[in-house]
Each structure stands twice: as structure tokens, then as C-alpha cells.
Write a protein that binds this DNA or RNA. Sequence first.
DNA 1: AAAACCACTATACCTGGGTATAAAAGCCAT
DNA 2: ATGGCTTTTATACCCAGGTATAGTGGTTTT
Lengths: 210, 210
Amino acid sequence: MKSAASAKQPIVYVLDDEPAVRDSLSSLLRSVGLQAEVFATVAEFRQVHLAPVPSCLILDVRLQFANGLDFHRQLQEQGVELPVIFITGHGDIPMTVKAMKSGAVDFLAKPFREQDLLDAIATALQKDQQRLATNSVSDELRHCFSSLTNREQQVMRMAVSGLLNKQIADQLNLSLITVKIHRGNMMKKMQAKNFAELMRMAGQLGLSKS
Amino acid sequence: MKSAASAKQPIVYVLDDEPAVRDSLSSLLRSVGLQAEVFATVAEFRQVHLAPVPSCLILDVRLQFANGLDFHRQLQEQGVELPVIFITGHGDIPMTVKAMKSGAVDFLAKPFREQDLLDAIATALQKDQQRLATNSVSDELRHCFSSLTNREQQVMRMAVSGLLNKQIADQLNLSLITVKIHRGNMMKKMQAKNFAELMRMAGQLGLSKS
DNA sequence: AAAACCACTATACCTGGGTATAAAAGCCAT
DNA sequence: ATGGCTTTTATACCCAGGTATAGTGGTTTT
């Protein structure tokens, strides 16, 4: 069953204040083999622990006590990068533009064709899987990087910026051999087989821009 | 006047089949100090030579003999990355979504507030300036790269992928010294002061992914 | 107090990258 | 066909990176 670990069941979250909508979406999703979790309020949704599987959120724009667009922004500000598909019964063009500008995957006005929603979900789940894959790679990298001592991190930054060991030694007031050793330990801990690989890691870690 | 070279007058292109719209937009744009160029048909617009200055296109969705959305796609397929702002008198939500998904900067339904259009234009021009800046950098890089001989390009690809000179020599059936010389010439022509810089160039050239 | 870790240094040695000089062979264009 | 460019190789030399071994001194944890 280990092989299924990377291909876990995706989850589709539904946040809508109308019970009828929740029920119909829920059964639609289940009918195509998708795991659905429905919520009536923002507070309810906030309590859920997002599983580390490809997922997306189907969000009603007009909730009882909140605005779906604002809620989407809040999620983003909290670093929740869940792909969002908006649905609404009372949409207009400015609202649509605002939703799409803020990065929604799709925006569907009721009544919509079931297939359009399913297509949007497929796109959203694919996008999320991509995000999870990218994240897990850079998580691993960040873990390696944070396992470095301060000095080693310093040396890595300076090395990838193109400085010679000698220049690093001068700037840090160290002897050449000390830099060499920090650098060697750093390469081991980063599991970089060569300098080119280290440069790519530094790129992914955002060490080249800062 | 040389100093003004990088801060040239932006141009706003307007493509709309209604003369009244063209005129009113044109005068609005001029009133805020923007250079406007108006077109009535797709054919007319195609003949214009896009100046290398920050610019954007205000595009009516429903043209007399064409569809604005389709035209936008066509431009993109031809590599024209001009930011587009759609305006329309007969818009609906699916159309809006389609436009935004295909990368439009904004989508405005008539009647719209003048300020909304001006805001959209400011965003679009900023985006285009960014694009021009990025492009000019990689243009220079591509020029350097294309000035390399085939061998030198080969060696560069292999070097940035992390191979040792020895490994490159084996794979290309060359002697070590030959590789060293190609590599040295390549570094000179690329104007890379060190290997880290070369790696960054390779990244910008898209040599790491392929 | 001992163990563990970090930072630093030194000597010595090895490998890899880079240059200068020199030279041979092929291609191409004026 | 002669000069220019590319490609190839060689010898010799230098410098930068990297490792092993060994030792000092500091902090923190147990």
C-alpha cells in the first residue's frame, strides 16, 4: 500500500450556506468518485485540518455572514494556497474580475453545467498536486538548509553568489582553511554532489535574489 | 536626451469598431498624457509595428468581423505578449472568466468608470515595462549564447548540468585539454566572471530544464 | 565533570579548473 | 589560394577547491 501514498484520494471542500446546494454538490462529487467535505460557515471550515492531499475549495461568493471573495483573500494572507472555484447565484462582471484577479481557478454562475464544475475541479486538483510536489521538494531543501550552522549558511550564501573561498575568508575574517572546511561540511549536509547542484538548490531556496 | 531612452512615452492601443468609443477613449487617454493609437479592425491593428516601449491594448470583445477573445489568443500564439484590457457592452460571466483565464489584465463592462480604466492601464503598462526589462536582459544573454560555437554550447550545457571536464571529455570523445579550452572560450564569450554567474545565466536561458 | 557540538587553525597532499604556447587539420569565403 | 575560423591535441605551469589529520578553545547539554 506504500505505492498509494503519493496518489492519495483528493478532497473537494465545499463551503456554501444553502443546505440544498451542499447536498447536491456533495452527491455530484461522490457520484464521480471524489471525496467531498461540506461546510456551512466560514467558522466551520476554519476548524478543518487540511490534509496533505490534492484538494480544492468550492466557495459560494455570498455566504450568510461573510463575503467569499474576502474570505479567499484571508486564506491567501494566511498562506493557505488552496485552489478556489467560486460559484454564485448573484454574480456580476466586476465581481468575476475581482475573483479571477485574486487567483481563483474558475467562477461559475448558477445555474451552471455540471461538466463545467467537474472540469474546473480537475484543473484545480491538478494545480494543487503541482503545488504539493513543488512544496515537498523545497520543504526538503529548507530542512537541509536549516540543518546548517550559521557559519555554514553564511558560507553557502557567499559561495553561491560567486565569491572565491579566499574572498569569503577575507570578508568573514577567517583563514582560508576554515572556509574550506565549512564549505565542505555544507556540501555534505546539503547533499549536493557538485557546485552546479548547489546553485540550483540555492535558486529554489531563493538565495540568489535576496 | 540619452537618459530618456529607457523612459520612453508609453503607448496605449485601442481596438474598437465603434467610432464614438475610439474617439472618447482617445481623448480620455490624451487628457491624462498618454499616447493613444486607435484602430477599427483587426487587420488595421495587425499592420502596426509595435514599438519597444511599455504599451497595452484596449480591446473590444465584440468586433465587427472578429471575436476579441479569439484575437487575444491569436496574438499570444504569435508571441505577442502585449497586456490586454477588455471592454464590452454585452458581457456575461462566462465570457469574463474566459478572458481573465487567458491572461487579460482587466475586463470592463460598459459603462465603466473612467478611473477603473485608467487604473487598469496603469497596471498593464507596469506589467509591460517589467516584461520589456526581463526580455532585454535575456535577449542580451541569448545573443551571447548564440555567439558560441556548437561545441562551446555543448560544453556549456554539460558544465552547468554539473559534469566534470573529464566526464564531458569522455562523453564527447575529446581530450581533457580540449574541453578546458572550449570551456574557457565559452566563459569569455558569455562574459561570466565565475561559474556561479554562468549558472544564473543558464537558468535565465532555460538551459537547466531542457 | 564529561560528552557533544561548534568554530577555528595548521600542515600536507591531491584533484580539478584555467592559461599560455604551440601546432595540426578541416572548412569556408573572398 | 590564402587568410580566417573552428576544432583538435600536447606540454607545462599555476591556482582554487577539497580532504585527512590533528589540535585549540568555547558553549551547551547531560
